[in-house]
């Protein structure tokens, strides 16, 4: 018997947790428990990112997604969680339709996922060497692509290749756009959630 692949074992663990709690989010009708299951599911997904060698994305997932967005969500849940709204049940007919549509979609996606040869698992596990992802990502944002150095060099040597240049495509522009977008969202959310103006004598 081959020895157990530690990487695979951890993957299966995290994947099982992520999938099981994702399904639990759908199945449960109590909104606070839904939020809790979602937290666990997304936390396990962060584990999957670490396993895939994407340290920075994993840490970001934990910090922004789980630590920021979901806390916000739970906050919203608690603000609106009052007696009748905590558990709102879905009708049985809707469940049946949702189950049929969902399982057919799942079947389609899964059969696609396992059919393409290029996506098959490698014949033997590659040694998982931790890479320094954060500085590479930072460079990528500024247009300095560590992972595309050969391509860029080839384009520099041969100008005909550079026509549809793919080598040093950076992400500075999207980064700026998303920063401004975040600012707009911040102001918009504050505007939407502001208290209604009360008509009446102003307090001194």
């Amino acid at each position: 018997m081959d020895s157990i692949n530690v990487h695979s074992l951890l993957f299966l663990l995290f994947a099982a947790v992520a999938c099981a709690f994702a399904v639990a989010v759908v199945v449960t009708s109590n909104v606070v428990r839904m939020a809790f299951y979602l937290v666990v599911s997304l936390g396990a997904t962060a584990g999957l990112y670490f396993l895939a060698g994407a340290d920075f994305v994993g840490a970001m997932q934990l910090m922004i997604y789980v630590g920021g967005t979901l806390v916000l969500l739970v906050f919203g849940v608690m603000l609106t969680a009052q007696g009748p709204f905590i558990s709102m049940r879905t009708r049985a007919g809707e469940w049946i339709i949702a189950a049929v549509v969902g399982s057919s979609l799942l079947g389609l996606l899964l059969s696609t996922a396992f059919r393409v040869d290029a996506w098959k698992p490698p014949a033997e596990a590659r040694e998982q060497t931790a890479s320094v992802t954060s500085s590479r990502l930072g460079g990528g944002l500024l247009g300095y692509r560590v992972d595309r150095m050969e391509q860029a060099a080839a384009e520099q040597a041969d100008p005909t290749l550079a026509k549809n240049s793919q080598g040093m495509s950076g992400y500075l522009m999207p980064f700026e756009v998303i920063s401004v977008h975040l600012l707009v969202v911040l102001i918009a959310a504050a505007y939407l959630a502001r208290p209604k103006k009360r008509v009446g004598p102003r307090e001194a």
């Binding site: 910090m63 630590g67 992802t133 954060s134």
Partner: peptide, 20 residues
């Protein structure tokens, strides 16, 4: 972990879920 600083800050921040 290559991003240990972020990881620790993120994980300590998760403690809030238990409290909530």
């Amino acid at each position: 972990i290559n991003t240990a600083v972020f990881f620790i800050v993120a994980v300590v921040g998760l403690e809030v879920f238990g409290v909530i």
